[in-house]
């Protein structure tokens, strides 16, 4: 099932990149993002799926609103043949390298292989999360308790990006 949606997703991605119309490119990007959200539901990740859907909506609205009415929505100009061939060859070589490297990963869906121990943190979170933090959504427990420092960094990154956008779009030099 996941593989099927993934095929669809890759096709949408190729359309998003190759389409000559910017609006259809952005809509195809939306398809890629929402397909990811659906896959997340299949992968038992409701928290992430919610965030993914919402972020995708924000991005699409911002992309359409901020970019589309500014430029010609149809891209003109001939495509450079050699650039394309080179790109495809390079990406193909890249993929062969990756296929070699992926062989040693643990079997898909086999998490975890070891018994409950402190050396595998996610096991620890599942086993002791409720007792230690008192909340039942373990993902929130990891985000805001065990790895709260990451979340501080993340909020700061968001703050920094907002400040940056405000600075870049300010009126005076």
């Amino acid at each position: 099932m996941i593989e099927l949606i993934l095929f669809f997703k890759i096709i949408a991605a190729i359309i998003a990149i190759e389409s000559k119309n910017l609006l259809s490119a952005i809509v195809s990007l939306g398809a890629v993002g929402f397909a990811l959200a659906i896959i997340m539901v299949f992968l038992n990740a409701p928290d992430v799926a919610i965030v993914q859907v919402l972020v995708e909506v924000v991005l699409l609205v911002i992309l359409v609103r901020a970019t589309l009415h500014r430029d010609l929505t149809d891209l003109k100009g001939k495509r450079e043949f050699f650039v394309k061939v080179f790109g495809i060859v390079a990406v193909g070589a890249f993929f062969l390298g990756i296929a070699w490297g992926l062989i040693s990963l643990p079997v898909f869906g086999s998490f975890p292989e070891t018994a409950v121990s402190v050396a595998v943190p996610s096991e620890w979170y599942l086993a002791h999360g409720l007792r230690q933090t008192g909340i039942s959504n373990i993902v929130t427990a990891v985000l805001l308790d065990y790895r709260a420092y990451d979340t501080l960094g993340e909020v700061t990154v968001l703050f920094s990006a907002i400040l940056g956008a405000v600075v870049i779009l300010r009126k005076k030099r």
Binding site: P46, D47, V51, L54, I135, N137, V139, L144
Partner: peptide, 18 residues
């Protein structure tokens, strides 16, 4: 209910900004 069911500050914030 972010600590009891899926969701949380980020998701809620995004929804409110919508």
């Amino acid at each position: 209910y972010g600590h009891l069911s899926p969701g949380g500050g980020f998701a809620g914030g995004l929804i409110i900004s919508f």
